[in-house]
């Protein structure tokens, strides 16, 4: 009985420690809030990338009607 109690007590204590070590607390998320930490940074330059993709592939009429799909732009 005593042994079980000690095991439970120690495991709860360790669980508390691991939570503090692993979890980034809300007030520590300053660097996570930066733009460069965005999960999809490509999204920010998506328009530019799309334009380059369409020119390179030359498979469609570009992103808008006035752009040609000749691959020459």
């Amino acid at each position: 009985m005593k042994k079980t109690a000690i095991i439970i007590f120690v495991s709860i204590l360790f669980a508390g420690c691991s939570d503090k070590l692993v979890r980034v607390m809300p007030y520590e998320k300053e660097y996570f809030a930066q733009d460069k930490m965005n999960l999809s940074p490509i999204e920010l330059r998506g328009e530019q990338e799309g334009h380059i993709f369409l020119i390179r592939e030359a498979s469609a009429g570009g992103e808008s009607s006035f752009q040609g799909g000749c691959g020459c732009r």
């Binding site: 009985m1 079980t4 109690a5 439970i8 007590f9 709860i12 204590l13 508390g16």
Partner: peptide, 10 residues
């Protein structure tokens, strides 16, 4: 005793 220990830990 176990309940007491658990409450103290919490």
């Amino acid at each position: 005793k176990m309940i007491l220990i658990l409450m103290m830990s919490l």
